[in-house]
Amino acid sequence: MRRVRIGVVGRMIGVLVVLGIAVFPIYWMFTTALSSDADLFAAQPRLVPDFGQFGVFVDALADGPTLTWLRNSTIVAVGTTALSIVLGIPLAYALSRFSFRGKVAVGLLLLMTQMLPEALMVVPLFSLYRRFELLDSLVGLVLANTAFVLPIVALVLKGAIDGVPRELEEAARVDGSRPLTVLLRINVPIIAPAIAAAAVIAFFHAWNEYVFAVTFIFNKALQPASVGLAGFVGEQGTAIQTIMAVAFMFTLPAVAFYLFAQKYVVSGMTAGAVKG
């Protein structure tokens, strides 16, 4: 009995340590934002936020375009997530279930796209976007981000569809279901946890993306937060507390989306367990 109790305590300590490692950077960002200049470089770092400095958050929201940046980032991230999932599901299904010439090559090509850095594609994409008048447009950013994240989304979803028993699909077809119905009614609910995981990947990629955003967007009003944050770094001076305050606000929607998606990941996993 005593050994069991120690085990529980040990596990709790372990969980708390892991939680601390995960949460500490965000906490430190918050604490730094709420530090005076003197505290920033004090011999003994300030471990507790100085709430007397809370004005830095108010100023960042009131004086700067922080809310505009966050709105733009949200549009780009949600758009990229939705488009990559909508396009990724049929692509993954085709790769998983259909036999066609060049299937292996398509799979390899998808993998190869993940080995190209974004910066390598900036110049050719810039020319292309200029021709199609997609520069200075959030739609353009959504398309560029989707192009980069779609392969990984498709590969994640293909792996999930591979695990769905074909018998389920065959039973549906016997009942008269069309291929699209089979995909939407049979496969999608079963692979919901994988869709949620892929959505998290797509959202985070688009939320953090910088190279395309800084190059393709000229209009300040269309800048996402990743670019806006970099604007606080000056040639001779940097407003550290302001950066940390905006960066803290920048992390919150991403964390919220993760928590939202995680619910579906877990529910999908447990749904199968209950039936079994």
């Binding site: 770094v233 000056g234 040639e235 001779q236 001076g237 940097t238």
Partner: peptide, 8 residues
């Protein structure tokens, strides 16, 4: 680049 400098 100096437009973003807090002082300048």
């Amino acid at each position: 680049s100096t437009f973003g400098d807090p002082g300048l």
